[in-house]
């Protein structure tokens, strides 16, 4: 650390720069504007819009197929499929269930894997850093962007589902798993809750994607690795030999949102899921920090 001995000598000279630091409120405003720029760029980008459209297409596809086909025998296909003809609101729930294992992780993988590696791939990472964006700040802004997508993705499925369901099928009181019946307003609330549950479910995967994204300059690699991990976690969750590991897998509670369709609502899986995801965010956030702050940006 041969540089350290020179720091003190120049301490006095930095005084003339101190005028810049007086503008703290302006800096905060600028931090917001960086985040705003990131969100704008993420959601205005054609690829992101295509991903959200693809997700919204799932309920539309389900609804149209059910509308055009004869009655589905109960107990076959994804849960609630047979209820759709009676109540359009089930389209959203069914589509969410279908989207959980693959489609949602796929889109999150693309967005989270692209965070840092995408910038590196374009070469824009070096210009962001010399702007200077600040490495920790850049990581945070990028993660918040990924989180915003985690909010948008399940919402796209749920809202598109509710919309197409209301358009093609009657809407009425909804039967919960417990056999109790709730009004459409409450049912819509529950669907939004499920979407929120999915958002929380995907936060851990986003943190993993962010970390993987700091490892490479090739965004496709980080995306693929993130998606593969999400599939691997689900496969491991099915192996009874690894039962001790199951509660630690980030996908373990992905289907736990069924508890939100019971009466009364079971919050246990929501809490467990949130704690697990928080753990993943902490671990992979720390890893991403360690990696990115000490990384040579040579792209």
């Amino acid at each position: 650390m041969s540089r350290s001995d020179q720091v003190s000598e120049h301490g006095s000279r930095t005084a003339k720069e101190s005028g810049r630091e007086g503008s703290v409120p302006r800096q905060r405003a600028s931090s917001r504007s960086f985040l705003a720029s990131e969100l704008k760029q993420l959601f205005r980008r054609g690829r992101t819009q295509a991903l959200l459209l693809a997700l919204a297409a799932i309920p539309v596809m389900i609804a149209v197929v059910v509308r055009l086909s004869t009655a589905v025998p109960p107990g076959r296909g994804p849960a609630f499929l047979d209820r759709i003809t009676q109540n359009g609101l089930f389209v959203g729930v069914t589509a969410l269930i279908v989207a959980v294992p693959l489609f949602l992780p796929l889109t999150i993988g693309v967005v989270a894997g692209d965070t840092i590696a995408g910038e590196a791939g374009h070469g824009t990472l070096r210009y962001l850093l010399v702007a200077p964006a600040g490495r920790v700040r850049l990581l945070l802004v990028k993660y918040v962007g990924a989180v915003a997508f985690c909010v948008a993705a399940p919402l796209a499925v749920a809202l598109a589902g509710a919309g197409i369901g209301a358009a093609l099928f009657p809407v009425g009181p909804v039967t919960l798993l417990s056999g109790d019946v709730v009004q459409p307003g409450e049912a819509l609330n529950r669907m939004l809750l499920i979407a929120a549950y999915q958002t929380v479910s995907l936060l851990g995967l986003s943190a993993i994607g962010l970390f993987l994204s700091t490892l490479t300059d090739v965004p496709v690699g980080a995306m693929a690795a993130t998606i593969v991990l999400s599939v691997a976690s689900q496969v491991l969750d099915q192996l009874p030999q690894l039962e001790w590991l199951h509660p630690w897998l980030f996908s373990h509670y992905w289907f736990g949102f069924a508890d939100l369709l019971r009466q009364p609502i079971g919050w246990d899986s929501f809490t467990s899921n949130a704690m697990l995801q928080a753990g993943y965010i902490a671990v992979f956030g720390a890893l991403a920090y360690g990696r990115f702050v000490s990384k040579d940006v040579l792209s």
């Binding site: 600028s30 960086f34 760029q41 054609g46 070469g123 824009t124 070096r126 962001l128 010399v130 964006a133």
Partner: peptide, 29 residues
């Protein structure tokens, strides 16, 4: 200007500059 220019190909020239300027927390919006 480091090792050649690099930009987001899907953004306009002005939007690219807006983006980089927003990344600088000292730059006034």
């Amino acid at each position: 200007l480091v090792e050649g220019p690099a930009f987001y190909p899907f953004l306009s020239g002005a939007a690219n500059l807006h983006r980089f300027d927003a990344a600088d927390r000292h730059a006034s919006p």
